[in-house]
């Protein structure tokens, strides 16, 4: 073995190399003979000190430990950023000799925000795009629709009568004569029936008001009396 290499090992034993990742350490790690030299030079120092204090111990468990660790998984720790390393170095508490794992709060907050947005999207979809009645709903809401009589026979709404609101002015008679309860078109009524039935079921399961803001206000006849419609609640 080259004496120059052994001299490098000797300096390495004394921590007298400029850089820990220097070639000398790599060479020791690769060469079994240099490993032995590394071991003996450390042993010499221990024995010299042991001889001085009267206690020389001679053990060699390196091979036994190596064999015992062969079945152990290799340790793999993610490389920490320089900021984390600085924080770790400055920490002085007793339990600080522990590698801190990745902080989960950012991930949790992100997942929470994503879940909230998804929930909001679903709710809006359910409320506004149900059965494709987007066009009719504004009409129902804006026109003063009277839910004259809603009869629920298990799942059907009997009739929806729209009456134009008659004001209390002098044109009431004329308006009443021209605004007789009008039957909605059959296709629309069928669609609306199905919608209301589904709405009742939906509102029973998710506790939403759904169409109630549109359907509850009832203007009955020409008078000012207002009564709430009877809405089937068999689904509740």
């Amino acid at each position: 073995m080259n004496d120059r290499l052994k001299e490098q090992v000797s300096a390495l034993v004394d921590n007298e190399v400029e850089s820990a990742s220097s070639n000398s350490l790599d060479q020791v790690l690769k060469s079994p003979e240099l490993r032995q030299t590394w071991q003996r030079y450390h042993q010499l120092g221990d024995w010299m000190r042991g001889a001085a204090d009267g206690k020389v111990v001679n053990v060699d468990v390196a091979d036994r430990v190596r064999m015992a660790l062969e079945s152990e998984p290799a340790i793999l720790i993610p490389v920490q950023s320089s900021v984390d390393s600085a924080e770790a170095t400055s920490s002085s508490d007793v339990g600080a000799n522990v590698v801190s794992g990745p902080r989960p709060w950012g991930q949790i907050a992100g997942i929470g925000i994503a879940a909230a947005v998804a929930s909001l999207t679903v709710l809006l979809f359910q409320q506004n795009n149900f059965l494709g009645l987007d066009d009719q709903l504004p009409f129902l809401a804006s026109s003063e629709t009277t839910l004259h009589s809603v009869e629920t026979d298990n799942s059907n709404v009997a009739a929806i009568v729209q009456t134009a609101e008659s004001s209390q002015d002098s044109q009431a008679d004329q308006l009443n004569s021209t605004t007789q309860p009008t039957q909605l078109s059959a296709s629309f009524q069928e669609k609306l029936d199905a919608y209301l039935v589904s709405h009742v079921k939906q509102s029973a399961t998710n506790g939403m008001q759904g169409m109630l803001p549109y359907a509850r206000v009832v203007n009955h006849g020409t008078g000012a009396s207002v009564k709430n419609s009877r809405i089937g609640r068999q689904g509740r």
Binding site: L12, N15, V17, E18, S19, A20, S21, S22, L25, V28, L29, R35, W38, Q39, H42, Q43, D46, W47, G50, V57, N58, V59, D60, V61, A62, V65, R66, L69, E72, A74, I75, L76, I77, V79
Partner: peptide
């Protein structure tokens, strides 16, 4: 260089040979 720190760092990166050097150094 702090050899121990470097060896520990290497062990933590999966190099068992570096731990062997630590054993040989400190076993006595």
């Amino acid at each position: 260089a702090d050899i121990d720190t470097e060896l520990v760092r290497r062990v933590q990166r999966g190099d068992k040979g570096a731990f062997d050097l630590l054993v040989r150094k400190y076993q006595q």
